[in-house]
Amino acid sequence: MSDQRIFAAALLDPDAPCPAGLTAWNGSDPIQRFAVYRNNVIVSLINALAETFPVTQELVGEEFFRAMAGVFARAAPPKSALLAEYGQGFPAFIERFKPARGVPYLADVARLEMLRVRAFHAADADPLPPDQISQALADSERLPALRVTCHPSLGVLSSRYAVVSLWAAHQGLGDLARVEPGVPETALVARVGLEVQVVALPPGGDALVASFLRGLTFGEAAALAASAAAEFDLTANLALLLRYGVLTDLRLPAEVSP
């Protein structure tokens, strides 16, 4: 191992010896100076996770969260210099983290929070102008063949748990005591203007959006969503997607990629 690798590995392993050859500028003990540095590294990573996953932290309490985040940070240190993106593997880690088993919805709440950060930094795109929709409606024969483009910030999370209600209750919206965690919810996460919004999608909305993202036509996507969820309501789903401005284009495939 190179000196640099030894140094980096020792930073994340509290049992590793202080790397050889270190000197302190003021002649103090390098072992102690290194321990301070090692502590700062792990604390900064835990702080980063706490900022991205505030509701996850509230659900289990600060002490539990920081301990769990520390285990994760040592096992999966950042691969990118962009700290804002750190923690993408955290939800999957939480799912496998045995002490967190008692809070089965914790991983999905963390997924929702990661989608929020992703949405915040996604590129801008203008919502579909109403007159473009009117034009499409005027030529309704072509509707089934049109392709729907979604906003880059759009994220959808289908959960077996009430992720949206749980998250909202921690924003002071709704009463946490009245949230039934075991009710499945699908979250739509998107940035509207400068603010990231989280709303529950009606049944089948996840299949509809996933089909749009896969590049299926409007007609195929609607049919697929209808077969995916018995109580699929195309109008309700489209109204919500339009209201939040997450549909950005509607045109024939030939026009999408000339």
């Binding site: 109403p130 929709i133 009117s134 499409a136 409606l137 309704s140 024969e141 072509r142 509707l143 089934p144 299926l216 036509t217 409007f218 007609g219 195929e220 609607a222 049919a223 697929l224 209808a226 077969s227 195309l234 109008t235 309700a236 789903n237 489209l238 109204a239 919500l240 997607l241 339009l242 209201r243």
Partner: peptide, 20 residues
């Protein structure tokens, strides 16, 4: 793939546009 009819799509999209 099966696809929804133009009429059904137009109705849903038109109503959704009005709602939003």
């Amino acid at each position: 793939l099966t696809t929804l009819s133009a009429t059904a799509l137009a109705l849903a999209l038109g109503t959704a546009l009005a709602l939003s």
